[in-house]
């Protein structure tokens, strides 16, 4: 899909998201692809905080805030409830942040995938609990400074890599899973359009930069969301019928991660050695991808 094919109708507007918010863009674009028959569930997090302040409610379609841990289980109920009443033409879609997905919501998500519930779960990943003031989540990357992983003498930012949610979803034998980035919207829109047509559980994990939490300018969001893919740090891929596939292969040699890190104050403390370690890890991951995804 491309911008010309996208409807001019808006479904998520008038909200209070910060300037340059990648999450708001991810939700807005997804809704344009899904259309008015989408029933959205959003847990506690940035998008529910900025979009559901009575009496200013910002979804033109049906939408509900779920409990923090209950995005997937509420989607299950919405889908079952509509189907039980004979509805067929709708999408139950979740928009949960990285903490809502990889930490507190992972049990309900795993349960829904295990049951094969006919829902679309979109994780907009800004790599920390941004709504509560930038605390580390299970999807914060190695090295990231957050308010709970300060970069000082003893702690040098987050010391653990991101949970591999895409692979975790795939390991359930899910109907469809994909990674995406708001920097490559056509690829993201293709994946949503495809997910809409597939029965069963769909999981799309979209990188959504956060100027506040990442320490970047508000006009750098798209650039950063491209960099993370171009550097090979976030491969754009999908999983369908038991097979992994790259959808938009980053050109090799990959862009230098150094520039990506330099633009963000959360990585300012990283040493050349840290970046070399991250780069080596990336290369190891790509060896695996080439072998497992491409059979080479």
């Amino acid at each position: 899909m491309n911008a010309r094919e996208l409807t001019k109708d808006e479904y998520f507007f008038g909200h209070k998201a910060c300037a340059g918010c990648g999450g708001a863009l991810a939700v807005r674009i997804a809704m344009k692809v899904l259309g008015k028959n989408a029933y959205a569930a959003l847990p506690a997090g940035c998008m529910s905080a900025v979009g559901f302040n009575f009496p200013q409610l910002c979804f033109a379609n049906n939408a509900i805030i779920s409990t923090f841990a209950g995005t997937a289980s509420m989607l299950t109920g919405i889908e079952a409830g509509l189907r039980a009443q004979g509805a067929t033409d709708f999408t139950a879609v979740g928009f949960a942040g990285d903490g809502g997905t990889a930490d507190i919501g992972i049990q309900a998500l795993s349960g829904a995938i295990d049951r094969g519930d006919d829902i679309l779960y979109i994780c907009y990943d800004n790599e920390a609990y941004m709504n509560t003031g930038v605390q580390k989540s299970g999807l914060s990357p190695f090295g990231a400074k957050t308010t709970t992983t300060p970069a000082g003498e003893r702690i040098r930012g987050n010391i653990r890599p991101k949970k591999r949610m895409f692979e975790i979803a795939a390991a359930h034998g899910i109907a469809y899973a994909a990674t995406a980035s708001v920097g490559y919207l056509n690829d993201y829109m293709d994946k949503i359009a495809k997910a809409k047509t597939i029965r069963g559980t769909k999981y799309i994990h979209v990188i959504a930069p956060c100027p506040v939490g990442w320490g970047t300018r508000t006009d750098e969001t798209i650039e950063l969301a491209r960099d993370i893919a171009d550097t090979g740090l976030w491969p754009l891929a999908e999983y369908e019928n038991g097979v992994f596939r790259l959808t938009k292969r980053a050109r090799e040699p990959f862009a230098d991660p150094q520039n990506y890190f330099k633009k963000q104050s959360r990585f300012r403390h990283l040493t050349a050695g840290d970046i070399a370690a991250i780069t080596a890890d990336r290369d190891l991951n790509w060896e695996k991808i080439k072998k497992e995804y491409e059979g080479s």
Partner: peptide, 12 residues
């Protein structure tokens, strides 16, 4: 937790 969250989604 999911039992009641699911029931609420269906009721909603």
């Amino acid at each position: 937790h999911s039992a009641l969250s699911c029931a609420m989604g269906a009721s909603a």
